[in-house]
């Protein structure tokens, strides 16, 4: 499952570079939605994978995944404006708190794969919606 986390961060980095290149043509409403997608899914997948490896450190893993989601959301939001950054910070932290619970309650880790697929599909939708905004 560690390869999934690595893959997720690589995909997020590629999409963030693409969004950074397109940041001048992106409307503020689409920017806010993109921020929520990246921060939320990063928090969820990080929590769901990390709780598989370290089930004895539930609290530390919850805080770590929350901080990761909040950082990714805030960094992506700063491409657009400060209100998007604030929304991404809050949403990433919320989803990061939920991630370890989701990973621990569903025993098998298939849920991380499904979340990863949903994340990629939503990012492609968002990327294709940029020229219209």
């Amino acid at each position: 499952m560690a390869i999934l986390l690595f893959l997720h961060f690589m995909i997020i980095a590629v999409f963030l570079i693409r969004f950074f290149a397109l940041r001048d043509q992106t409307g503020f409403h689409l920017g806010m939605n993109i921020t929520m997608i990246t921060g939320g899914f990063t928090g969820l997948i990080t929590g769901a994978v990390l709780i598989d490896y370290f089930p004895f450190y539930f609290i530390a893993m919850t805080i770590l995944s929350a901080v990761t989601g909040a950082c990714v959301g805030a960094v992506n939001g700063l491409f657009y404006d400060s209100q998007s950054a604030l929304t991404g910070l809050s949403n990433g932290l919320m989803m990061g708190l939920m991630g370890p619970m989701l990973g621990a309650a569903g025993d098998f880790s298939m849920i991380a794969v499904v979340l990863e697929a949903a994340c990629i599909i939503l990012m492609i939708f968002a990327l294709s919606a940029v020229p219209k905004s």
Binding site: F56, I59, T62, M101, A104, A105
Partner: peptide, 14 residues
């Protein structure tokens, strides 16, 4: 145990 996890210390941290 609701999520199948062992008991933990440091519950004030969250």
């Amino acid at each position: 145990a609701l999520c199948g996890l062992p008991t933990q210390d440091g519950q004030i941290l969250l």
